[in-house]
Design a binder for these strands. Structure first.
Lengths: 199, 199, 199, 199
DNA sequence: TGATAATCGAGACGGTACGTCACGTCTTGTG
DNA sequence: CACAAGACGTGACGTACCGTCTCGATTATCA
């Protein structure tokens, strides 16, 4: 189904998977989404743009959202890593500010919003998006929070899961409604929800 | 339940717009969305289900999301009114609990999420959704908050606009990610964001 | 059905038929055919152009070809009468030259060709065209020929009916295939088919 | 008889054009024209009858008349060849009798009349019909006549082009007006126009 | 002199077909 | 065997006209 989740295949004979074609598809999908919007993101357009046969796409991905999910996972891990050590109020604040920037100014943020949207329309996308993006990231965010609480840097007014929704929900909601997400908002949310120790 | 199914033949009413056809379309769109999801919501399916010609739909609505917007506006005004007088912490809490219920258990909530999603894919939907649903409701919510602050019932930690996003964003985000929205979460958000006086 | 063929209706009361509307429709149909071709000749376009309601057309004509037939009958009786008295080789030759001119250079000729064409596609048009245009004219043409034979002006090589087809058929065929119909051709046909006495 | 109905499933043949689909379309168009007339000849009906996708038709033909033209060309070359050698008065007479039969009793004749009709309504059809059917056939007919004159078998009263119109025009005209085309007529025309030597 | 009855412009309505687009599947031929 | 190429059946798109219908406003005739 998805290339990113599978271990490298070891075919018994014949040609191996063409890495150049794989990258061309991912980039074509990304570019088309950013340049012309989700409406113009068709498998045929991706194939045309990537200079690839349609069948090559269907051989490796189950749908166009499957392609987007691959790009989102690769990009978000590079450009918006969840802080893993030395959690202070500052690192959390920076992560959330990064998230806000990611949502509104990064092409990968557009992919995230498109997938979140498409998940409302298509259960298969919903499941894959949940399992391959949301849940793994949420696990790392939970760990981040727990570490911050353990060190006394954070003292949330809400239970951990609720706290994460209280912090991230408003950012995503504003991005979805086309509003900007100012740094002030992030700071105010952190203060209200996490009651951080001075950092 | 669709209007077209109850009487075998809708009386045609001549020159003026046919109100029965209008209702049949709105109900058909609603029903199809709930029963088979946004993917099955095509103009042709709506027309078929409503017992109406496709052209009759295009005469009055510019797209299927335009139909959904009509149903959302009518339904949300009936089933989720913004409290207008005597604002206490309780009325706000109830409104938000109602919002949570609306999002997860009401067919009109499904319409809201579908429109919010489609707005990510289509600028025209985004504009219409913003102007005809989000902004009018937000204006009334702002007024609600202002009244609560004036009477001393509410003392938000955040500026009004930010406070509304901090309250509603998490509810919508959880609904979008398929999670339930428990009453606890609403209460905790109200406490954290609005610092209500005892009510 | 058709206004031209029915006796004028005598309703006991109410408005009489609007003559201005009748003429507007006939002219609109004629103009549209000549300006934009049969493809653009729709009932809606005629109504629009004539400034008339669609229902007014359907009240008096059964189809758009019925309208064309009315214009053809009125125009062809005025502009291409069948010679009735004093038949010489010259009058026949002139009639056929007139027919050629009618077919290629008169707007009513375009109507004739359009109806002959539409008769191939629609049996109702075929019947009406036959009964209201072709047959009456052919009867008068037969009479013309008979008179010419009686006076010795004409001595056809073919039986009368066949002679008429041999004379008119080539003219119509050339018009249908987009060719011009030169006077020479008419003269040669008359010579070959009718063996006229010197006139 | 339609090709699509004999085997339950046509074998799909991949990258190249599907010959079975091509034939199924040609036969379906022919059948529909003969059985239900030009009015029932819609692209959708052809596709339905041929068991073929509408898009497959549009991929290879520009319109339904383009399909008819293909069938006409194939059929008329098989069933009404223009005599090429040994031209006598008899071969010409037989060709014209064959033409008469083709026009009134052959399904391909119905196609010819439909195309000649449609050419009056649509310039694109007119051009294609002229260039792909009429002109090539006329060229061969001209050659036939020239050969007959050269051998002294024929001594036309009219110039060659005019003679052909004088011979074929009446046949086509009678077919168009729903009349039969008797053999006598053909003989009389040949005698009057071509003044044949005894054959 | 009204009441009656037919006409008229306007246009909504249920339909059918249009020609286009993208879907996902399949087959061919090349490296 | 992967891959470029692309034909195929499927089905929705948004548009144009079809012929029927109902409105409300004019007129003319006749009681």
């Amino acid at each position: 189904m998805s290339a990113a989740s599978s271990p490298p295949r070891r075919p018994r004979s014949g040609n191996r998977r063409d890495e150049a074609a794989r990258l061309a598809v991912l980039h074509a999908a990304d570019d088309l989404l950013v340049e012309h919007g989700f409406g113009a993101l068709t498998v045929e357009a991706i194939a045309r743009r990537a200079g690839v046969a349609k069948q090559t796409i269907y051989r490796w991905w189950s749908s166009k959202t499957d392609i987007l999910l691959d790009t989102l996972i690769e990009d978000s891990e590079k450009r918006l890593p969840v802080p893993a050590e030395e959690i202070t109020a500052g690192t959390v604040r920076d992560y959330l500010r990064g998230y806000a920037h990611f949502l509104t100014d990064d092409t990968a943020g557009a992919v995230l919003l498109a997938l979140l949207a498409q998940a409302q329309h298509d259960p298969a996308t919903a499941t894959a998006f949940q399992e391959r993006y949301l849940e793994p990231r949420r696990a790392r965010e939970r760990a981040m929070l727990a570490r911050g609480i353990a060190t006394g840097a954070l003292a949330p007014r809400l239970a951990p899961e609720a706290a994460l929704d209280a912090l991230i929900g408003p950012l995503v909601y504003r991005a979805l409604t086309g509003a900007e997400v100012p740094g002030d908002l992030v700071d105010a949310l952190v203060d209200a929800v996490l009651r951080p120790a001075a950092d």
